[in-house]
């Protein structure tokens, strides 16, 4: 009862309520309220995440398991960043309220938190992002080796669209007159045709399918057909 029926009722009731609320001017703002609650809930739930992170890494360090030194680095950087941010160490006062210590911006570049953000966190994440340039190349290379028509379509389209964005496109096909009947062979024309007609159509159909899929999935949840995460035993 408490473990299955009530959660299912909560789920169905909250779902139906929000669907109905959307249609009345008196209740349309409920969705915003609920999303606001969710943000608070997610922030409170950090306790779970932090607890897990500490538990896992402390266990590695205390048992001197393989890689414990890295776990120690994780723990230390976590603790340092946490303390820097929570106590706003080195934060510049708020010009309007310099007497209130915690009124300063926690992210200001002069603070310890801001320093770690700018010189540790940010370069690390943007380099991780930059690795994608290499992965895009290796993925294209792999698709190149596939011998079926789908892979060829994908790769040749990617090639046309890519080359049309560079000077290479103009260099190779720029000499074809725009008013001739072969103008569609120009890379820039092909790119426009592909992106504006085919890609738009493809994305539209994908989006329509996804919308129906999301609607059906939501309905399955509200109707209680899909309850795998609710049953603990």
């Amino acid at each position: 009862m408490l473990r299955r029926t009530i959660p299912m009722l909560i789920l169905a009731a909250s779902g139906i309520l929000l669907v109905v609320a959307y249609f009345s001017p008196f209740t349309t703002s409920w969705s915003e309220t609920v999303l606001g609650w969710f943000n608070v809930l997610a922030a409170v739930a950090f306790v779970l995440g932090a607890g897990n992170l500490l538990a896992v890494n402390l266990e590695l360090v205390s048992a001197r398991r393989a890689g414990w030194a890295y776990a120690l680095i994780t723990l230390l950087s976590f603790a340092a960043m946490f303390v820097f941010g929570l106590f706003k160490i080195g934060v510049v006062p708020n010009p309007d309220h310099p007497n209130v210590y915690f009124a300063g911006d926690y992210e200001s570049s002069q603070s310890a938190f801001g320093w770690v953000y700018e010189y540790i966190f940010s370069p690390l994440t943007s380099t991780m992002f930059a690795l994608l340039a290499f992965y895009v190349a290796s993925a294209a290379f792999r698709a190149f080796r596939a011998k079926n028509i789908e892979a060829i379509l994908l790769l040749s389209t990617a090639f046309i669209v890519l080359i049309a964005q560079t000077a290479g496109g103009m260099f190779l096909t720029g000499w074809i007159p725009e008013d001739s009947m072969f103008a569609f062979l120009r890379f820039d024309w092909m790119k426009v045709g592909i992106t504006e007609y085919i890609q738009t159509a493809g994305m539209r159909a994908i989006t329509i399918g996804i919308a129906l899929g999301i609607a059906a999935t939501s309905l399955r949840l509200i109707l209680g057909l899909d309850k795998s995460y609710l049953s603990k035993n």
Binding site: A43, F78, A79, F82, G85, Y106, F121, L124
Partner: peptide, 29 residues
């Protein structure tokens, strides 16, 4: 790489928690 990765995990986890604390918990709760 492992050192860089560990630093990134530790600092970013704390970053988002502190961000959640100062931008959500404090003003909205």
């Amino acid at each position: 790489y492992k050192v860089s990765e560990s630093l990134l995990i530790g600092s970013s986890a704390a970053y988002w928690m502190i961000n959640g604390f100062w931008t959500t918990i404090v003003p909205n709760l």
